[in-house]
Computed example of a mutant assay.
Amino acid sequence: MTAHALSDSWTMTRRELDRWARQPVRVVVGMVFPVMLLLMFGYLVGGGRGVSGDYVDYLVPGMLALTMAFGLEGTMIAVTEDLDKGVVDRFRAMPMADGAVLVGRSAADMLQSALGLALLIAVGYALGWRPDCGPGAFLGALGLLLLLRFAMLWIGIHLALVAGKPEMVAAVQILVWPVGFLSNAFADPATMPGWLGPPVEWNPMSQTATAVRDLFGGPGGEPGHLWTAVLWPLALLAVFFPLAVRRFTRLNR
């Protein structure tokens, strides 16, 4: 990437960060919602089905993985609002590197995701969660989580470009909830009906959650899931990143 493209991408990233200052409620709600889920399942629904060991040690890594799918509606709304208001058209008419708008949007989203992870980890510590691992494994777990988020982010960008209008986002984001909860974030798939267990186990979020639990040294972790936790996001990126870029370059053609 040339210096010109990097400069344009940084300009777009700063624009998205400035949007945070203008819309702080949306940012705060997006970061607090996973915390509410963690507290609700940790205290109100706590116990877990088929989980050996401390349920909080099982729950926190699962929530960290699940959070990587939630919050995409913020990305989708931001993209569709820019499309609907003609902002993207004005950017495309300027001498700006192709894709700088998408790079800026993704960079700002990843920064918000990193802050959200830090907040959720702090709440997990307050609940009594203690990872039993070294710094390398801890950073590796965070890397797996952010890789999943990066893949989910480009799915969201592509769907936003397809939807085109903010009012269409609600219809699309409904799909996030079944896919998100159809995972092992809250319960062991072995306790689920036989027909449901395999799809839950192969959910990308389940693969990441299982690998992260292993790296954190908690219950429910299996070392064999590390590679699938890497390959799933890479496969999603291989599909949706070029789709999003191609959709963006063909706008209004």
Results as ranks from 00 to 15, higher is better:
Y43A: 11
Y43I: 11
L44W: 15
L44C: 05
L44Y: 15
V45T: 10
G46P: 06
G46Q: 10
G47W: 06
G50C: 09
S52N: 13
G53R: 07
G53H: 11
Y55I: 01
Y55G: 03
V56F: 06
D57A: 13
D57E: 13
Y58T: 02
Y58C: 01
L59G: 09
L59H: 15
L59W: 15
P61D: 07
P61Y: 13
P61F: 09
L64W: 14
A65F: 15
M68A: 14
A69G: 12
G71Q: 01
G71A: 12
L72N: 11
E73I: 02
G74I: 02
T75L: 13
M76D: 00
M76A: 10
I77V: 06
I77M: 12
V79I: 05
T80S: 06
T80L: 04
D82C: 02
L83N: 04
K85L: 05
V87Q: 12
V87H: 05
V87D: 12
R90N: 05
R90G: 03
R92E: 12
M96R: 11
M96Y: 02
D98H: 08
D98N: 06
G99T: 04
G99D: 11
A100Q: 07
A100N: 03
V101C: 04
V101L: 10
V101Y: 01
L102Q: 12
L102S: 09
V103P: 00
R105N: 07
A107G: 02
L111I: 04
Q112F: 02
S113F: 14
S113T: 14
A114R: 00
L115P: 01
G116K: 03
L117K: 05
L117D: 07
L117Q: 14
A118S: 12
A118E: 04
L119Q: 12
